[in-house]
Design a protein around this nucleic acid. Structure first.
Lengths: 117, 117
DNA sequence: GGTATTGGTATCATCCGTGATACTGCTGAC
DNA sequence: GTCAGCAGTATCACGGATGATACCAATACC
C-alpha cells in the first residue's frame, strides 16, 4: 500500500507546508513580478510597465505580500522620497533551487500532456 | 544586475511552466486528495470520508483534473460497475522530488517568518 | 503656476473557485 | 419492493481575488 505512495509520506503538517509554499508564489501576478525584478527592474513604474495587463492595485498588493514574506526588500531613497527600489533578498535566492525544479517539472509535464493527446 | 537575480534567469516560457506546475496541485483540495490516496484510499466515498469538509462536487472535479494531468488513474471494475478505483500513476511518483522540495521550503519559510516576528 | 513623473490608495464592479443542497442511475441486501 | 451504499451530476449562492477607474502627495521641469 505504501509502495503506491509518492516518495514522501505526507503528514497533515506537510500538506500545510506545501500549501504555504504555493500561497507565497501563488496568485496571478507574483511570478511575473519575480520575473521582472529578476530581469533588472527595480522601480514601481518600471515593473508595472514590464508586465502587460497588471494594475497598480495588484502590483502594489503583490509587492507588499512578497515583502511580508521577506522575498524582496523595499527601500525609499531618503534624498529622493519619490524613488523606491525593490530588490531580492538573499533569502529569496535560496528559493532558486525550488523555482528551478518547478520550471523543470512544468515543462516536462506540458510535453507529456501534449504528447499524449 | 544579473547577480541580484535568483539563480535561474527566467523567460516568459519559464513563468508559464511555473504557473502550470502551481495550477496542477493548486486549489484547496488537490493536496489533501493526494495525501488521502497516498494513505491507501482508493474509492470515491473512501477518499471523501477521509477529507473533512470536502463536498462530492469538489472531490469529483479535483479528481477529474488530477486525472486529466495524468497524476492518477480512474478504473471502473467491469464486474462491479459501481466500483471505481483511483490510483497514482508512475508519472505522479516522479513528482515526489518536487513535493519534497516544496515541503522543505514551506517549513523552512514558516520558521523564518515566525522567527523574525 | 502648469504639467509630467513616481509611487501609490480608495472605491466599486466582476469573475471564478468554492460551498450547500438536491437529485440521479446502478447495485446488492433484506 | 424497499432501503442503503457507491459514484457521481445539477443548480444556485457566496466570497475573495482580481479588474477598472479615479484620485492623491511629492518632486522636477519649464
Amino acid at each position: 500500500m505504501k509502495d503506491q505512495c509518492i516518495k514522501v509520506q505526507q503528514t497533515e503538517e506537510d500538506i500545510k507546508a506545501l500549501q504555504d509554499t504555493i500561497y507565497v508564489i501563488g496568485g496571478k501576478w507574483k511570478l511575473p513580478i519575480i520575473h521582472s525584478i529578476c530581469n533588472g527592474n527595480k522601480h514601481f513604474k518600471e515593473i508595472e510597465r514590464s508586465i502587460p495587463g497588471i494594475t497598480t492595485r495588484m502590483l502594489s498588493r503583490s509587492l507588499r505580500e512578497l515583502e511580508d514574506n521577506k522575498l524582496i526588500t523595499r527601500t525609499v531613497d531618503p534624498n529622493v522620497p519619490t524613488l523606491v527600489e525593490y530588490e531580492f533578498t538573499e533569502y529569496a535566492k535560496e528559493y532558486g533551487v525550488l523555482i528551478t525544479e518547478m520550471i523543470r517539472w512544468g515543462k516536462h509535464h506540458k510535453k507529456m500532456i501534449i504528447g499524449q493527446l
